[in-house]
Amino acid sequence: MSFINAMQERYTTKVYDETKKIDPKHIEELKESLRLSPSSINSQPWKFTFVSDQDIKEKLSKVSWINTEKVTKSDTVVVFSRVDDLSLFEEQIKRELPQGMVDYYNENLKPLPKEQITSWFDKQVYLSVGVLLSACAVMGIDATPMEGIEPANYDKIIGNDGYATLVAVAIGYRDEEDFNQPSKNPKSRIALDKVVETI
């Protein structure tokens, strides 16, 4: 399947078939796809937690607002977190990045208030969300990005020390009767010439 076809077919899954499981090999490929996600100055201020344990998913479902059944019936929930402990991040970049990138952080970002730095981290994490959704589409895996969760409670449940949950993505396979799939609810997007400009 071409990338365009995959994007045409992907949609936000509303109902999962809990009897269909993702091949563990594909889970490993998704993990590697996330590891390869782009980020500004290769900062990688993130952690990705794959939750397939049903008991943990049940706990997460109770703090997932209208997403309860997506959490419990999907195969896996991927929790996207950003670094919340700046000292942890600074140790990481000293260990992992070239000095030029460390200097960029120290000169341009470190002097800012923590809220601005973590807001910059958030943007990097959201790049990785796009990578996961695209990888799932190419692999024929259904996905549901979910901001409708309680991040602080997610942190407690998964033991997210030094990190802060931003968003979660349920992944698995759609129920045949899911009302939101393109065959039942055609994809709606603004016309190309309204959103893309060529200069």
Rank of each mutant, 00 (worst) to 15 (best):
E32L: 13
K21P: 08
T13L: 01
S33P: 01
Q8E: 14
R35F: 09
K25S: 11
L30W: 07
R35C: 05
I4W: 06
L36W: 06
A6Q: 07
L34W: 04
I4M: 14
R10E: 05
K25T: 13
H26T: 08
D23R: 11
T13P: 09
Y11K: 08
S37P: 12
K31M: 08
I22V: 13
F3M: 15
R35A: 04
Y16F: 11
K25N: 01
E18C: 01
Y16D: 00
E28K: 09
I27N: 00
L30G: 08
D17A: 09
L36Y: 01
M7G: 00
N5P: 12
K20S: 02
M7T: 13
Y16V: 03
K20M: 12
K25P: 04
I27Q: 00
L34K: 14
E29W: 03
L36N: 08
R35L: 12
R10G: 06
E28Y: 05
E18F: 11
K21L: 05
E32M: 03
N5V: 08
I4V: 14
I27W: 04
L30Y: 07
K14Y: 10
T12S: 12
Q8N: 12
E18M: 01
E32T: 12
K25R: 10
E28F: 09
E9Y: 02
Q8I: 08
V15D: 10
R10S: 02
E9Q: 15
L34D: 07
F3T: 14
E29S: 06
I22F: 03
K25L: 01
